[in-house]
Design a protein around this nucleic acid. Sequence first.
DNA 1: ACAGAAGATGAACTAACGCTCATCTTCATC
DNA 2: GATGAAGATGAGCGTTAGTTCATCTTCTGT
Lengths: 188, 188
Amino acid sequence: MPHRQQRVDAVRNRARIMAAARGQITLHGPDVGMNAIAAAAGVAVGTLYRNFPTKADLVGAVVNEHVEEMVLDVEATVARVEGGAPALAEIQGVTTRFVESSADNHAVKAAAQQLGAADYGPLEQRAFAAVGRLVSLARDAGVLRPDASSEDFTMLLTTAPTDQPPATRARWLTLFLDGMTAGARGPA
Amino acid sequence: MPHRQQRVDAVRNRARIMAAARGQITLHGPDVGMNAIAAAAGVAVGTLYRNFPTKADLVGAVVNEHVEEMVLDVEATVARVEGGAPALAEIQGVTTRFVESSADNHAVKAAAQQLGAADYGPLEQRAFAAVGRLVSLARDAGVLRPDASSEDFTMLLTTAPTDQPPATRARWLTLFLDGMTAGARGPA
DNA sequence: ACAGAAGATGAACTAACGCTCATCTTCATC
DNA sequence: GATGAAGATGAGCGTTAGTTCATCTTCTGT
């Protein structure tokens, strides 16, 4: 073992920084200052930069956590549908959960934006794979329009309105999902 | 006449500033610096501030121009439909024009955002009136879902994807409009 | 308990931005 | 032309936000 073990206070500080960054970005968006995050973590700015060379790295780490949450949710949904759960209801479920969580969560919003961007990391590929499986399951069940694609749902995630009142958000989802089901064969 | 006539160079500079601001904001978004706009106008920053007390005033002036264009387009569309033009095709037309113009035009994007905000100026009221007329005409013609509202179209303008490739934008509009026509009675 | 490396600190640096104002220039008037 | 007010100029102010680094502290291995 060439390297000495990492110090316990360093581990603790990194955890505090991630927690504070998550909280601050969730609350105030990715534009919060590094000083604010450092203060919330009970740590000096320099410690932030020891763990994350630039602000983009820190924000990216937080965003990645949320992307992972979203991916896990979609994968769980796929599993339920494969187990016999009604596809359309499950799709309404995930999309609603997503839109609601991104409503007053600026970190999730940023995460969605990143999914729209085309820098394909391994996590993004997992996301696309899961969404793809969900779409083809639902399409085969006849509850989506025949030409429905996973890109359609990526679009949904990217363009979902986040700064609108709850009633508007719900209406938006209704319209979009009705568009996704227009011309569907209908379930057996 | 109490006031002396405005100087010709002052008039010329104001026009140059508006043109430069329009161009720069269209190109780089509302976050361009005042120095950049001044340079593009061939004028010093001080001259910008003589014509527009704050940056918000300048950006607001540019955005207002675009809002007005959009309003005129909708009003013309209403007139055509009232004259017997097919309602659904006309609606597809305006919305397509809007999405396309906001695609690589950051000023129009900002204009749409402002329409979504709730500070009702006289221009905004004209916009809502025109959209309202268009929706009720189309609904009465049976080409929109019975519960279609003008808020639905405001939402469309606000959430339209602007940073996506043309094919994605077109697909988005298709889905949204199919959602708007789902459950429609159908034209006579 | 000690040495030394890993880590933490926060004042200060840099860059960008909106905005001001003392000074100079240019046009309208007579 | 001459005059003076309207207008133009641009260096610089105040602020904010990301980043650095010389210095001090704390933990780990022996």
